[in-house]
Design a protein around this nucleic acid. Structure first.
Lengths: 222, 222
DNA sequence: CCAACGTATAATGTATACATTATGCATTCG
DNA sequence: CGAATGCATAATGTATACATTATACGTTGG
């Protein structure tokens, strides 16, 4: 008989246990179930996740490289604690990365790709009008990721994603007041029109301002 | 009374086997002993390094997160292969990172720190005059790392280090002709004077040009 | 002769057992 | 009574054994 997975891509993800654990732990950290600075004991977590220590430890190594976990030799793992300065520095870096991505995107992005970002933007606006905070937030993140993806620069995309992941937890907590929320919407509008005109100068400025303000939005939550 | 590990750093590195393996493998890859795209079999490597599979596998996870190793589920590890585009994209990103670092460094770096970079620069010049290629190259790298360190932005420093590590192998192969070598020296001179004048504009421009040219220097070696 | 299947082998993935190191508590000495 | 020390406990680090999956090769049927 033919193998279970034939030509048509049925299920690509031959669910790797490693990735599953990494994903699960990442969620636990982002949702705050594992608090900042909290010690991570292997044995109880193994019990909870139903896996043995070996794959769990490998997952912790991965998360440590991602910067979400701190691994001290002979002293185990901790959920990494981010200081106010850490968050600020990450935002400064992300801003620079997205500005670079903006320049590259205006050069290399195809019409179709830009249209997809527009679609995300419109969807986000709909969530905004409906007052759907969670989906608004998620789509917002997706837009930033999508613009970076337009740069067609894999190392840049990876680096950005890693930093974005570290900040997710902070942003998850941050419940911006409605006034800041509205400002962010306006900034996104500016980004969108600049992108569609492929105006690198304007797009870079818009993203720069947007992420500069992002610091104001989250600085009090850290 | 006073803790055993007081201000003076006695012996920080309680030599972690993990870090030792990671370092060793990194060297093997950089020096080309493990070729690009080459399959990494765990068992023989364990024999060679004299360790068991467990810590070796954890080390491979770390290197995978660093981007030096490619890990495919159920199909093992490979030394990651970098295409011409990959190298180009990494240089574009590194350039942007160092430009950012340059701006931050001009704001926050102390006189003493800048003096240390000057010292590195002078030492590099000495190696250049002596025709000591290897130490010249190493010191060159150290200068770039040192300037980024002046930014006082930990995420930036980490990101830069990771990318720098991935490129080390390429640069290790690249034996620039003397004419390009001389040009690099001149560019470094410009960087140094700009840094000492804390002229962010000039430093950014110098670094940008330097890394733009870096692409020309390595593009044929990939 | 070619193609497809099945089996043997070897590699990776996971679990468990063992070794080493850190940590907390009780005890004892100053 | 306080501080230091030693032991018990528990955690991490490492090795090994077992399970699963991929791969290569020989075989067989068309």
């Amino acid at each position: 008989m033919t193998r279970q997975h034939n030509g048509a891509a049925s299920h690509i993800s031959r669910h790797s246990l490693h990735d599953a654990i990494v994903g699960r732990l990442r969620d636990l950290i982002i949702e705050g179930e594992l608090a900042q600075g909290e010690r991570i004991f292997e044995a109880p977590l193994c019990e909870t996740l139903g896996v043995s220590r070996t794959p769990l430890r490998e997952a912790l190594r991965s998360l440590a490289s991602e910067g979400l976990v701190e691994l001290v030799p002979q002293r185990g793992a901790r959920v990494r604690h981010f200081s106010v300065k850490d968050v600020h520095d990450m935002l400064v870096l992300i801003r620079s990365l997205e500005e670079l991505a903006a320049r590259l995107a205006c050069e290399s992005a195809g019409e179709h790709d830009i249209a997809e970002v527009r679609e995300l933007h419109d969807r986000m606006m709909a969530f905004y009008r409906d007052g759907n905070r969670l989906d608004y937030y998620k789509t917002n993140q997706q837009i930033h990721t999508a613009i970076v993806a337009l740069s067609d620069n894999e190392p840049l995309i990876q680096t950005h994603a890693s930093l974005q992941a570290r900040l997710k937890r902070i942003r998850f907590i941050g419940h911006d007041g409605p006034e800041l929320w509205a400002a962010a919407i306006a900034e996104h509008e500016a980004m969108m029109t600049a992108l569609e005109r492929r105006d690198a100068q304007a797009l870079t400025a818009a993203i720069g301002e947007h992420l500069g303000n992002a610091w104001e939005r989250v600085r009090d939550m850290v």
